[in-house]
């Protein structure tokens, strides 16, 4: 981050993200999921708040119905606006009963935000090593290996150009910052590594914080005569 940063508690940022996601147009329920995802990432020392700020800034103003998953049937392919990572993520954990072996999600917006949901799925189903490969289009590419919700063995972010230049070259800067995401199960059971301790603090750049605060403010109702009367104390509240 280039701008000034501030330190926050993870709960504080998760609460802000919930409001910001609602402000960006998600239902309160998906806003809860956004907070869940950010807390999960932050607890593992990852930049969940920054990733969510970018995501919300991107989807704000979109008709979110156009980036929803339309069906659990594979393949999961987004339309012109891409597929929302939160919608895909919640579907991944809702549909634990459906085998989604070697799932490929094409054109997913903010694939980084899939990680908390993939980790949950993997822990519930197999605790086997899962490899997530995201080939970038405009967002940073990354690879992650997950064992369980607690053990994220590696996340490799790459800010380099796409491993698939052909795909990248079809995009221009006005298009969605989406990626193609391949989720691979690796058959060998993982050796359970020691549970890493959680991180309870997170830093956030001023720009990202401004984005979240601005979107959160969209959930606040303009003052009315009734609201100015306060929480019900009446005219005198001093004794």
């Amino acid at each position: 981050m280039t701008s000034a940063t501030s330190e926050s508690s993870v709960n504080e940022i998760a609460a802000l993200v919930k409001k910001a996601a609602r402000g960006a147009g998600y239902t309160w329920s998906l806003a809860d999921e956004a907070a869940y995802a950010v807390a999960w990432l932050c607890h593992r020392g990852l930049d969940g708040a920054g990733a969510m700020a970018s995501h919300l800034k991107h989807v704000q103003g979109l008709d979110l119905a156009t980036v929803r998953l339309q069906s659990l049937q594979q393949p999961w392919v987004g339309g012109p606006n891409g597929l929302c990572a939160l919608a895909c993520g919640t579907a991944l954990t809702d549909a634990l009963h459906i085998e989604l072996r070697d799932l490929r999600i094409d054109h997913v917006i903010s694939p980084y935000l899939l990680l908390p949901f993939l980790a949950y799925r993997n822990e519930q189903l197999s605790k086997r090593r899962m490899r997530v490969q995201c080939t970038h289009l405009l967002t940073p590419a990354f690879e992650a290996e997950l064992i369980s919700t607690e053990a994220l063995t590696s996340v490799t972010l790459s800010h380099n150009s796409s491993s698939n230049p052909t795909e990248a070259s079809t995009l221009n800067e006005n298009e969605s910052p989406t990626a193609n995401c391949q989720i691979l199960s690796v058959d060998s059971p993982s050796a359970m590594s020691e549970q890493p301790s959680r991180v309870h603090r997170t830093t956030l750049g001023k720009d990202e914080l401004d984005v979240l605060n601005r979107l959160a403010a969209m959930t606040y109702a303009p003052a009315t005569e009734a609201s100015r009367q306060g929480a019900g104390a009446g005219t005198t509240d001093n004794d």
């Binding site: 606040y220 109702a221 003052a223 009315t224 009734a226 929480a231």
Partner: peptide, 23 residues
């Protein structure tokens, strides 16, 4: 139930008397 912009605190309004439903 809504949160007021002015006080950032939860409030309880009258849905059919004030424009609050969006919030």
């Amino acid at each position: 139930w809504y949160v007021s912009e002015e006080k950032l605190e939860p409030r309880l309004g009258e849905r059919y008397e004030e424009p609050l439903s969006d919030y």
